[in-house]
Design a protein around this nucleic acid. Structure first.
Lengths: 211, 211
DNA sequence: CTCCGAGTTGACTGGTGATTCAAAGACGGG
DNA sequence: CCCGTCTTTGAATCACCAGTCAACTCGGAG
């Protein structure tokens, strides 16, 4: 009774969600039409509505689905590093839009802003947003806690508090970098995040900032 | 030849722009219809298009117009205070969504997020955004410079750099407060901003945080 | 080989909303 | 009072798009 799959192993649901995320990134949530998503999948518009109850539901699902994927990829990436300091630096690098060619994050930040706008009026999405956001701050706080158990970092301010501050800083700067602000480029953002992180956690930066 | 004004002294342009800003805040940029704006002004939809070339232009103008008004009001408010420290604390208070009953800023932050989303795809608005954003960071940096000339603050990191960091932190936290995040309320945001400001500029916080 | 149902299509419906436009005020100057 | 111009109206136009639906495909079960 297993649902027949199409050529590639993927599920149509996922395929559509990914296509939707791509279209939203390109055209913006407000200008995304069902037709566009259908074209991304090379299927007919009718099929999209066969798999999703409505356009609205699909879009919201696409936003959170996509964010989730990015988060998991990031978590996997960080887990490979032993040192808390390395993890923190890596997390910053991964968060800077357009810093790492392979892992640009441009797409994700654009989607994240769309989530904000929509969450203002969509209570269900608002709840989702809070969960996703908490997880993100948490991952920073966890790195701080890790560093303290291994004595890489000294004890100090509450780790969750640091997570909120650093998380908010990264959010704010990422928006500006994403907007191509001429005064806040990726490398500049990276340095500022490192400086604030060092100050919040309480360690010295080496003179030669790690790339 | 002066254009005839209507009953109240206001210009139709302004009246429409303000109405548009109100509607955008309520319904969101994407769901704002010309009809809604017309109703806010108690005029017919046709008139809106008589004063503005197109809905798109009107909306973009409304966003920047509104931001401008808020900024000027804030600048006027700050100028009344002599001490740099007071100015900085006031700026923070004014920035926290929903902290001061009279000056909620909820509306402004919501519009600001709409600007971000739209600026991603509208080069003209993107340029506007950068100007507005720079001015905002600048006003923080100016307070730091003021405090240094009056020796309230010690010399230290470049003031513009501090402006970017603190500005980004406020942006990031404001979004969360605006979203009604259960872990980041207005008072909490206020305290975190004060702590980071004190640390960046280099002064001690009094034990009893000023309300 | 035939039947069945999930998967898929694309034409169709309905509603919506921006924009246009011709006609109708309103108002100051002559 | 009459005229011309600036405002304002509301109906008409026009395009667009979400969602519906009847028909078609196709692979597997019997």
């Amino acid at each position: 009774m297993a649902r027949a799959r199409q050529k590639n192993g993927k599920d149509r649901h996922q395929e559509i969600l990914e296509a939707a995320a791509r279209v939203i990134t390109e055209r913006g949530l407000a200008d995304t039409r069902i037709q566009d998503i259908a074209e991304q999948c090379s299927v007919s518009p009718g099929l999209i509505l066969y798999y999703f109850e409505s356009k609205d539901r699909l879009l919201v699902e696409a936003l959170t689905y996509s964010n989730d994927r990015y988060y998991l990829a990031q978590a996997r990436d960080l887990r490979r590093l032993d040192s808390a300091r390395d993890q923190l630096w890596r997390l910053i690098d991964l968060s800077v839009p357009g810093l790492l060619p392979d892992f640009e994050r441009l797409e994700e930040w654009a989607l994240w802003i769309e989530i904000w706008v929509r969450a203002l009026r969509d209570p269900a999405l608002a709840k989702e947003r809070e969960v996703l956001d908490r997880r993100w701050r948490q991952s920073i706080a966890d790195i701080v806690r890790l560093g303290r158990t291994t004595s890489e970092f000294a004890e100090g301010e509450d780790a969750d508090e640091i997570g909120m501050k650093l998380g908010a800083l990264i959010d704010g700067l990422a928006v500006q970098v994403l907007m191509n602000d001429t005064q806040v480029g990726p490398v500049h953002m990276q340095r500022m995040c490192q400086e604030v992180a060092a100050s919040l956690i309480g360690f010295e930066l080496e003179p030669a900032t790690s790339a």
